[in-house]
Amino acid sequence: MRNTTTRRRVNPDAPIISLEKVSKAYTAGIPALNDVNLHINRGEFVFVVGDSGSGKSTLIKLLLRELLPTSGKIIVNGTDVVRLRRRQIPKFRRNLGVVFQDFRLLKDRNVYENVAFAQRIIQKSNREIRKNVPSMLSIVGLAGKYKARPKQLSGGEQQRVALARALVNKPQILLADEPTGNLDPKNSWEIMNLLEKINDSGTTVLVVTHNREIVNAMKKRVITMKKGIIISDEEEGGYIDED
């Protein structure tokens, strides 16, 4: 008897994120994204920079399938995001780790439960959760604070919990929307070092940021956006002053 199960095959050489002629307009007027073409390869570390209203957040929302583009094609890890059905979205998002500026932790649960929550969503057994969560908390340096509630932690620690939650399911892509926006320089660097470490282990990392110092110092690929258009895309680039 033939096995009728279909498996999606992902070309390992194909870009892990691919946008072709993507536009997004919320209302009539200037589009948030305008005919954007972007390709990010597996294992890359990419900064997306630009002023407010440049389209950075819209880009993240499109990659997360929170929004649909007005036109164009978006492929993320072999999945055509535009053609994704609503009920397929949760499974799609489980392959993406996501970190936000405001951490977005479950405030009424402790550090351990916040990280374990991501594992429960993918229906890991309790045994696996008990193994994976402490291990991930060790990586982000919070093994000793697993019982603490988010409000008992500093901003940097909260962001590390968010990172642990984003990474515990071993996603192939990590999207970070202003991960250092609420942090002091010391904590910002700690988070960026963690992101670099994660990238070294093979995860593709896309960071939306305003942090000029970090972007200039890390010498990674930098995509600069302005008014919904990519105005610059440089390997080992820096923060471009628009004035």
């Binding site: 929170e66 949760p90 998002r93 993406l96 929550f117 991501a118 939650r165 399911n169």
Partner: peptide, 11 residues
């Protein structure tokens, strides 16, 4: 938050 990290509607 649940939805962002891939929770189904049921979950």
């Amino acid at each position: 938050i649940m939805k962002y990290i891939g929770a189904t509607d049921f979950f």
